[in-house]
Amino acid sequence: MKDADLPPHMRPERSFQGLILALQRFWADWGCVILQPYDMEVGAGTFHPATTLRALGPRPWNAAYVQPSRRPKDGRYGENPNRLQHYYQFQVILKPSPPDLQELYLKSLYAIGIDPAVHDIRFVEDDWESPTLGAWGLGWECWCDGMEVSQFTYFQQVAGFECRPVSGELTYGLERLAMYVQGVDRVFDLNFNGRDDARKVTYGDVFLQAEQEYSRHNFEHADVEMLFEQFKMAEAACRKYLEAGWADGGEDAKTRRHLMALPAYDQCIKASHVFNLLDARGVISVTERQSYILRVRELARACGEAWLATEAGGAA
């Protein structure tokens, strides 16, 4: 898969976008649908309905996509060489998990310039859990020469429901991988477009200002009152859509159908992000924190239940 014919500026080890393109090509070639990022603020690629909801139910599903991820608390005003409040994840979800998933993953690393003949690739225990999504799975963090570059998970439960079949999920930390293959110590120094002349654009050129501005916003100025209100609204809307979405006559748990699982789930995503912002603002106490997490999880569970009553969720 490693394409020697690529022009230098397109190569994954020289260009951030080249790395993304290489991963997309690799997984497209394997048979995934390549999706575009979900158009909402999420904390991780897992929140994309293409993972959360599609992991539920019996239908096979293979998808890969880049997902911009927001972690308001991780903002460092652009001053930390590694931490960002907005970064990219490359997400692969394969249902059922193929038997050679580890091999595929290693080949994908090879495709972006990480050769296991000279690097030390390790699968180190890391059990994944998302309290807000009511999801957990077993797997590893994948190390390359001591650096965690991906998360590898076999989903066991999502939204409180058992996954049958089990999906395999790969999450590549794109900035980390790019820093590694480009040999860069500061994320903002990453070469974004692979050019070395006047046309060179760095990650800092694209995102440094945003990191500074959003850090100010997340920690100091995000409108707390509005956010509290938004949380309540999103929560209420989610419940409203869920209730309205049950088709008439759907008393029987086996045959009932839901017609609005996706719009309802959007509101769950919304609530989750708003909670993250409130958390970053430091206005949620330790005790309240748990109850907010439980409220989001409850929404996720109800959305999962609705999804399982849709066609894509496998309802007959």
Binding site: V118, D120, I121, D145, M147
Partner: peptide
């Protein structure tokens, strides 16, 4: 490391040094 690297370990050491530095 869990491997006998083709380059005698240069890449692995450099990678680990970078992570430990960070």
């Amino acid at each position: 490391a869990n491997t006998e690297p083709a380059d005698g370990g240069r890449a692995i050491v450099a990678g680990n040094e970078r992570v430990i530095r960070a």
